[in-house]
Design a protein around this nucleic acid. Structure first.
Lengths: 335, 335
DNA sequence: TAAATTTACGTAAACGTTTACGTAAATAAC
DNA sequence: GTTATTTACGTAAACGTTTACGTAAATTTA
């Protein structure tokens, strides 16, 4: 049983326009009328219909977020930041799990356009031409989060993967390590894969540390099990490795697990540094040293950029967020 | 630039009613007209406006989910299941982070009612009278997830905490342990706190194992740091404890960390069993044995129940989902 | 006091879609 | 061939809100 603005107007003996003006602080009513109307609203328990409002205002105060298959904690931290900023700006967040599937992604994009969301955040996935064309045709604002597009002028928020990986490798070098390996993600991933590899390589090369194919193992993704397999492969191909940069925290944790199974002591025999600063990094044994992405802050920034577009109609500048070395206990100084 | 049904009708030389009938498979049009209209729709790239539809149909195909402050992985798994079921039923999911704050919760409830969501899922939090009264006044369907209400007739999906905790403790007993401690959550929490304590106590009592106040330590919540402190307290007050039931996986992981710091070997000196089966349980060192809640399945079931209400208008029965002991490597047989 | 301006309303139309109902044309039944 | 039924439309109204504009009354200004 829900009341409309017509019920309120009737019971208060005013027009629906007056009720609307009062609700929206629009001016053009007396204090006496306002008092009368507000009392009726409370009496009836009237709840304005945001759907009807959205139709008139062409603004739903709802944004859509597309997540691919990702580490749990990554999703949660990004979403925390997004949801916070959205809520602060009076908007809601629709979450879409694309499962890294192109067809599903297109379906979600279509759905979000039909629902007339105010904008979308596209997270941690390559922006394909088909997606870009589809979204652009509708003029719906879009922000890329933890990814970027080399092909299309879409504003993004991310860390500089090259620099962050460089910093991680440099950290190991500064701790005295010279035999440094890397458990990489997918080497075909131009966003998270290649720049982290290149940053690692550059750090070693800048410090005149010998580098060849035995230093890096490649995985299909960035998962725990990729880390388990990665550590095993690395110690096989680089038996005297003393320190490892893993291209995600989950892979670093996988490396810790594999080391434990193999009786390798971390950090006594091999030091490990991860990438992300997920909350599970501090829960590991030993607590993981990592190069941190400010995930919640990034989510927040992406949403704020979206609202900025909606306010000003202008495309905001992309933002490179600072990475940070978080020292815990998985890296040991080497004499 | 977006087109409306009027533009399509005009360009196809039919009425808007005909376009609507064709789009909704309603009958009352020729194949020739259908062909013509569909071609115009494709040419213009017309996208129906779900907001207008929602206003007419009084159905937005959107549900709201309220999450309190919870372990990352818990949220993600529950949300995965919810989002999957919603998507399968042609609905979207709005995510609201209440941060376990009453005022924020009320604000979100009001927002969801204004947005005329089709229903809500209220997760892992006590359903207060104020929330219940507010939602009930609007006839909006509600499902409780991983919680229940002893006061109000709201259908819920959860595991039986008492039985699951009993099973966990019994597992330790079956492994030969007789000196068993518990790291409990908040003892004032009538949903997740007390039944887990009582299940633990009953298992010990049923197996004639001595039980007194030294067996259980209490925490404020269910977090990693509660687990760290809990382990320390427990070995102080029960120095010959050989096995521990932690009332959440995160606390169990905290206990593993504290044990590592204190030079206690798990499972050689102390076995640990958790509660939840979060994905971090398999990533721990050693991989955590735990009593698992089927979180994604529960999320899915909750959403399905909501859609069932929307279809039939009838209140579904609550569902108690099965728990399951997941054996990994943190529990050792005791001779 | 008269004219100008502001305040406090109400009416009508708009937003983009769905659908009940009327009607003409086509088809089926007798 | 006539009558009954079905098909294929179009018109008008509905959904619940916002807002432009007109108008009467109140207030301010000269």
């Amino acid at each position: 049983m829900s009341y409309t603005i017509k019920d309120v107007a009737k019971k208060a003996n005013v027009s629906i326009a007056t009720v609307s003006r009062i609700l929206n602080g629009q001016g053009g009513y007396s204090e006496k009328t306002k008092f009368k109307v507000l009392r009726v609203i409370e009496e009836l328990g009237y709840q304005p219909n945001a759907v009807a409002r959205g139709l008139i205002n062409k603004r739903t105060h709802t944004i859509g977020v597309l997540f691919p298959k990702l580490s749990s904690s990554l999703v949660t931290d990004l979403l925390d930041g997004i949801e916070k900023a959205a809520n602060d700006n009076g908007s809601s967040v629709i979450v879409c799990h694309t499962e890294s599937n192109g067809e599903k992604t297109m379906k979600y994009l279509q759905l979000l356009i039909e629902k007339r969301v105010d904008g979308i955040i596209f997270a941690s996935e390559i922006l394909k031409e088909e997606y870009y064309r589809f979204v652009t045709k509708t003029s719906m604002p879009m922000i890329l989060l933890s990814t970027e597009s080399y092909a299309y002028p879409v504003p993004f928020v991310k860390v500089n993967d090259f620099h962050a990986a460089y910093a991680a490798a440099k950290h190991l070098i500064d701790k005295g390590h010279t035999r440094i390996g890397m458990i990489s993600g997918n080497k075909d991933d131009i966003i998270a894969g290649i720049p982290r590899i290149e940053g690692f390589q550059k750090a070693l090369s800048d410090c005149n540390i010998h580098l060849d194919s035995k230093n890096i193992v490649f995985s299909r993704g960035f998962t725990f099990s990729d880390g388990v397999e990665g550590l095993k492969s690395l110690v096989r191909q680089f038996p005297d490795v003393t320190a490892i940069f893993a291209a995600s925290d989950e892979m670093a944790i996988g490396a810790l697990s594999a080391a434990y199974q193999m009786g390798i002591r971390v950090p006594d025999e091999i030091s490990v540094i991860g990438y992300d600063n997920l909350n599970l990094a501090e829960m590991s044994i030993p607590p993981l040293t990592t190069v941190g992405q400010p995930l919640a802050k990034m989510g927040e920034a992406a949403a704020e950029m979206l609202f900025s577009i909606l306010e000003t109609g202008e495309t905001p500048e992309s933002r490179i967020m600072p990475h940070k070395i978080i020292e815990r206990m998985s890296v040991k100084e080497r004499k």
